[in-house]
Design a protein around this nucleic acid. Structure first.
Lengths: 346, 346
DNA sequence: AGGATTCGCTTAATCGGTTAAGCAACGGCA
DNA sequence: TGCCGTTGCTTAACCGATTAAGCGAATCCT
């Protein structure tokens, strides 16, 4: 039938009016623009007949708004981020926005490139799960007045909007839970990272031990390079189990660390939780399927994502306000992997 | 400094030339357009000084090309699709394309909406993991000459480009593997779906049994509604274990079915593989972490995604050619869950 | 009746680029 | 000298919308 897409011009022609008139009608500006009833009806009808779909590009060019959100995450193939992405996608759609997702690989320079590409694409704003050493980029966005909301990770020294889990609290609660369940030698494997959320997770663990009080052994806390998880985790576990006070419980700071660690623990034949209790950040089916279901810290992914979108949309449509900073509570899902320690009778 | 984004006009002004000239220079058309050496250099320098970034929107509006690919998948939070998404994202970026991902939830009407939204956004083409009952949509894309490539799932009766796993072969091989390892009562849990790839997976299983030959019991093959996986899988497993010829091996047709099934098997206390051997489609860390690592069918996700992008880009840049239809071989990763059956001495 | 309003619509500029066509100046050639 | 071709640049149309401004004609008001 129609060779090409139908434009406002086609409608105007068929109705014998100007394109301006058509635009007014189709934007519901008939009242303000004093368009005649008959003509308005006619235009609308023709538009429907021709199945007119306005060009997003043209609209955007004119208005400077693309109704597109850039979502920057570390890696879409990590289930935590994939879930975030899903929630953000849905919530954005509900608000009339389209999402472009980019993976930064926890890499500041990739993240920078990504941001530039997306800025070029004229996204209206960003939702960012920032990676290490990206403070400059965030500051730069601030300086350029590009709207964005940080998700789950933030920089306390930079005044930005953010929505995040209360990592400190989550970690504190997890460690406390282990103490309550009679574990005495509680270790933690975290990333060797300057990211604030990681510091918070570590601080929560440390404070929980201090408050309970447990004298932490120097080898109980290990930081693993994000670039060499498997070897790092292996070494960490080896060390922790070989000290004079071997750990009887282990807190993993991320999903990836846990997966790597559990694999190795399996290989070693260490029994969970009898030899070693486990609690981990991140949620996934993995933890249900492990022969001994894993206790995990469930971050409020749905709420995080929704709130982030909500905040961003608010920034995009309203006047800029004070930065909103929201911390959400994680939930500790208690499973068998950290059940009350059976103190061995010696 | 600069209040607004710098446009070609700003450069033209600063250089004292027309915008056309600037456009020619910045597009490397100096030769064809006979632009003077000096002026060209000057323009380029000014562009660099002002950190000029051309407006994607304006370019797209004029050219009709957005250099954007729409990726339609069932659900980004499913690891299989997340991995696909990651590969497609990377490969597209390498080719200068941006990806917009949309989740269809295996739902034809959502998929239709998604396609329309993305068409409206003027994506240049699609990569689609189609969902049930979406043949019409695919045909419609064909009729409208919108370029697309089907990924992993295709409709044999519709002439389209596609890149897919050889589902039949993968399934045939998996079932044969179980036979070889001395299992006699091999069951399969699949989706109750009209999708061709699911039929192929089932057909592969059936043919493998027939060829070996094993007389399949009517209760060995169960189809589960995609909308009620957990209850369906539970019922299926219950039935399969309760027949006069209870299954001693089970092939799951998808990752989701396997996760659900393994949970239930765990709960039942059925031992893998002694009581029940397991093989599943889909790959994920889950399968490594299960107390008994799970044999799985590893689809060539990287290649699938790369090839799909490659094919699409070719269609977008070259003249339309004959539909290319590519089947790729999956790899059976053999783990403990399907190791050779110890025939019990009675 | 005649100036002021109101009504209903059109004109044209604009967003930021691309690109066919044209124009002036210059050099070469007969 | 006159014609032609080349060189180097500009003009202006175009992509598809939005929107301020303007312009006749009808209507109101006194």
């Amino acid at each position: 039938m129609n060779k090409t897409k139908v434009s406002i011009k086609d409608i105007a022609q068929k109705a014998g009016v100007s394109t301006a008139l058509v635009s007014y009608v189709l934007n519901g500006k008939e009242k303000e623009s004093r368009v005649g009833q008959e003509i308005a009806t006619k235009v609308r009808q023709i538009a429907a007949e021709l199945n007119y779909q306005p060009s997003h590009l043209a609209k955007s060019l004119r208005s400077g708004k693309t109704h597109t959100i850039g979502l920057v995450i570390a890696d879409i193939s990590n289930p935590f981020f994939a879930n975030i992405a899903r929630v953000v996608e849905d919530e954005a759609k509900r608000n009339g926005y389209t999402v472009i997702i980019g993976s930064s690989d926890e890499n500041a320079s990739k993240s920078r490139d990504l941001l530039e590409v997306l800025i070029n694409r004229q996204v209206d704003g960003f939702i960012i799960v920032s990676s290490e050493n990206s403070e400059d980029q965030i500051r730069s966005l601030n300086d350029r007045h590009i709207p964005f909301v940080l998700l789950d990770r933030y920089f306390p020294e930079i005044p930005t909007d953010f929505v995040s889990t209360d990592h400190y609290r989550a970690s504190y609660d997890a460690a406390t839970h282990l103490v309550k369940n009679q574990y005495k030698h509680i270790g933690m494997i975290a990333y060797d990272s300057q990211m604030f959320h990681m510091h918070e997770r570590i601080r929560g663990y440390q404070d929980a031990l201090r408050d309970n009080p447990i004298n932490a052994h120097e080898h109980w806390l290990k930081r693993v390079k994000i670039s060499a998880i498997d070897t790092g985790v292996k070494a960490a576990i080896d060390t922790m189990l070989a000290t004079d006070q071997p750990v009887d419980a282990l807190l993993f700071a991320t999903y990836s660390l846990a997966v790597s660690g559990l694999k190795y623990i399996n290989k070693l034949g260490v029994r969970v939780p009898d030899d070693l209790a486990i609690v981990s950040f991140g949620q996934a089916e993995v933890f249900e399927l492990y022969h001994c279901p894993i206790t995990y810290i469930k971050q409020p992914i749905g709420l995080l994502g929704q709130t982030a979108v909500e905040l961003l949309v608010k920034k995009l449509t309203h006047k800029p306000t004070e930065p909103e900073q929201i911390l959400m509570k994680a939930e500790l899902i208690e499973r068998a992997s950290s059940k009350t320690h059976k103190t061995l009778i010696t």
